[in-house]
Amino acid sequence: MEAAVYYVFLAMTLGGALGVLLTPGYVGAAMSMLASMLGVAGLMLMMGAYFPAFVMISVYAGAVLVLFVFVVMLVGDAHEPVRLWRKFAFLVLWAAAGAVVGLYAPEMSSWAESKLASGVSGSSGALEVAKNYGYAMFKNNMLAFQISGLLLLAAMVGVIAVAKEPAVRKRRREMV
């Protein structure tokens, strides 16, 4: 039973990943990503990590991906055909990754129980879990957290710089 559910989620995850690589349009890719995320959330559930699983669905699937789709719909979907060699390379990579994960079927729930029994994750209450995440994010790993935030900010500025039409070209166009 557990194995069946595991393989369903696994298929969702890997199938979604393949879909991201191989669908021609952006919207289809985003939807494949959604399937992949739901699969990953399901795997998290099986390991007993309920809080991050639902936070991931809520934040990434419920908000970030919607934003992606909104932007794609705003600028228009692309229909560039996927080149054959790329398709093939993706397929090989994906098959290798899938074989590793698919052949290695861990006993996820028993693993979670053993962790719980040995007291690694502390109390099982959702409040405790949330508290632990808070401490991990804003106390123990504060520097890494801030650096990743800074990187995202830099990326955003870069995107705006790339997307913005250079002033020179704009002036030239206005002259014509």
Partner: peptide
């Protein structure tokens, strides 16, 4: 245990029906 999060997270997925219908 995380019923509220579950309800909010899964409930938010309903919008994909609208988006995909539109697209």
């Amino acid at each position: 245990d995380v019923g509220l999060l579950f309800a909010l997270a899964v409930g938010a997925l309903g919008v994909y029906g609208t988006i995909m219908a539109a697209w």
